[in-house]
Structure formats: structure tokens, C-alpha cells
Amino acid sequence: MKIIVSSAALAAVLMLGAAGAGAAQDSSLTPNFGTATLRAGFQPDPHVVELRAGGDQDASRINGCAGMVSRAPDYRVNYTAGSGLALTFRVNSSTDTTLVINGPDGRWSCNDDTGGSLNPGIVYRSPASGQYDVWVGVFGSDTPTARLRITEME
């Protein structure tokens, strides 16, 4: 039996396969709570953003991630490296939150709990210049308030 596959069907299958992990999170969308342009040595440090965590996308589609996040990033940081200091992202909330970041190199970083608390944090020891797309997730369907802190001082 001969199987004939149209080029459109083949292209669709290839696109689905290429989407892979993180396909539910879309960095091309406008961030829910804004964008910051930060240069090494930025002031004030920490840079703080109030936002609502959570969403309807399961972050576990990305290997090692957890929680429910939105499709669009919650926040975007365009960062210019140069100080030799680490770049740290932390979330503070009264609810158990998660943190998902797509860095300038296209790699995903995730954290659930850090420092013995239910608040997540991710540290880039040698941060690269470029775009950091940030999602703050939760377990369940709540959308609690959260505070995203970005610092070079920790």
C-alpha cells in the first residue's frame, strides 16, 4: 500500500514536533505586566514589579517546570550585561508560586521553592545580554498578587 502525504500535512506535523517544550508559552506576545530595559548596575536595585500570578497553561510542558502560568510572559526584561554580577529573579507572594524564565539563549529555567520558603528564585551567575521572558505561576486556578524582584545585589 502506498501512502501519500500532502506537503501541507507534512509541514503541519513538522511544526508540531518543532514546537516541543514551552509551546504553550509564547514569547512573541506582549507581556501582561510590562517590560523593563535594565543595564548592569541599574538603579534602583532591586527593580520591583507588582503582578498577578497564574494562568491557564500548565508549565509542566517545559521539562522541570511546575504550576499554572499564562500564555504571554508576565514580564519582560531587556538586560545589558557588563558588571560581572549575578542577575537574580525572585518572587514574593502569600501563595505558593513558581517561576519560569526563557533566557536570551532560548533556554528555559524553572524554580518552585527556594531558601526554605514557598517563594521561587532563579540566579544567573554570568548573565547574558538579551531578553528574559518571565512567567510567575501558581498551583491551581487562583491568580494571587505577587512581587517580582530583579536584583544584582544578592
Rank of each mutant, 00 (worst) to 15 (best):
N102G: 00
A86C: 10
S117D: 11
L85N: 12
S83T: 13
C110M: 12
D113Q: 13
V123F: 00
V77G: 02
S117V: 07
N102P: 00
V100M: 08
C110E: 03
P120E: 00
V77K: 05
D105F: 00
P120G: 02
I101E: 01
S70A: 15
V123Q: 06
D96H: 03
T98A: 07
W108E: 01
N119C: 08
R90Q: 08
Y75E: 04
V91T: 13
R125A: 13
G115H: 05
T95N: 12
V123R: 05
A72F: 13
S109Q: 13
S83R: 09
D105I: 06
D96T: 03
G103K: 02
T98V: 08
Y75Q: 03
V100R: 01
R71E: 03
S83G: 15
S93E: 06
A86F: 07
N102R: 02
V69E: 00
P120I: 11
W108Y: 06
T88L: 09
D105Y: 03
G82K: 10
D112I: 04
S70R: 15
R107H: 10
L118M: 11
N102S: 00
N78F: 12
W108K: 06
P73F: 07
T80W: 11
G116F: 01
D105R: 02
V91C: 01
D112C: 02
T97V: 13
P104H: 01
G121F: 01
N111K: 13
N102F: 01
V123K: 04
G121K: 03
